[in-house]
Design a protein around this nucleic acid. Structure first.
Lengths: 123, 123
DNA sequence: ACGATATTTCAACAAATTTGGAAATATGGA
DNA sequence: TCCATATTTCCAAATTTGTTGAAATATCGT
């Protein structure tokens, strides 16, 4: 997963409405929910929901399937797994591994740093 | 971590600039980088960077420490770990566990669903 | 104390996002 | 075929975000 794709996903999750939609759909797995029912459950105007649904689908976060007049949306859990991977890998100096095991914040972990450990300023 | 805090974090990560800032700071752990050097590294106007830095700090994603005239920023890895946890927990029907192990997308996993497995529409 | 530097705050503006209503499209049922 | 329903697309308005330069604040070095 590249940075651009990650940003697209975070963009989706950065709206209360869209995060609500996603969480609702995650709970509804593996059945999914039809657009109209999402609108009803979350009390969003169909027009507005459609806008968000399109954004999320384009980001790959949602999968759609037509069922007659209905469009059934489902959460793309695989992508979410990728996102978790992206976050984990970029969580500790770009070096995978660690970061989940202990609280890196408290300590210092000297060897954990990157190629530019110290920045100098002041001309 | 509640939904509101999660949205705040995703809001931070949903900007190319801010994600760039965060990744830079993650690489610079545990030393951190002073504001001016972030601005130079990412070629952002100081004023604009300050705006993003404040947003990220308010979201708890960054920690600041004053060093004389300088302000040294560091990535809050602990919060990122929380975010990963939030995502993981909300990744498979709100039931923690699983989701990392296999590709849930492909199968169906009948028992995995929530309390409202099927939605009905059509008056 | 004074001048230089680091960073922020402020205000104005540009740009992007979000919303809701009306109309368009498409499917299903009689 | 005709009508009702589901969803989207289109459009205009409202809101939010991001950028910029100038001024303010604070600290350092002399």
């Amino acid at each position: 997963m590249d940075e651009k794709a990650a940003v697209a996903v975070f963009e989706c999750l950065s709206s209360g409405v869209r995060l609500g939609v996603f969480r609702l759909l995650v709970k509804a797995e593996p059945v999914g929910i039809v657009a109209g029912d999402i609108a009803t459950a979350l009390d969003i105007a169909p027009s507005s929901l459609s806008f968000h649904l399109r954004t999320m689908t384009q980001a790959g976060l949602l999968r759609v399937e037509q069922e007659g007049r209905f469009l059934r949306y489902r959460a793309n859990l695989a992508l979410m797994t990728e996102v978790v991977g992206f976050l984990t890998e970029n969580c500790c100096s770009g070096v995978s591994g660690g970061c989940r095991d202990a609280d890196l914040l408290s300590g210092g972990i000297p060897g954990c740093g990157s190629s530019n450990p110290v920045q100098e300023s002041e001309a």
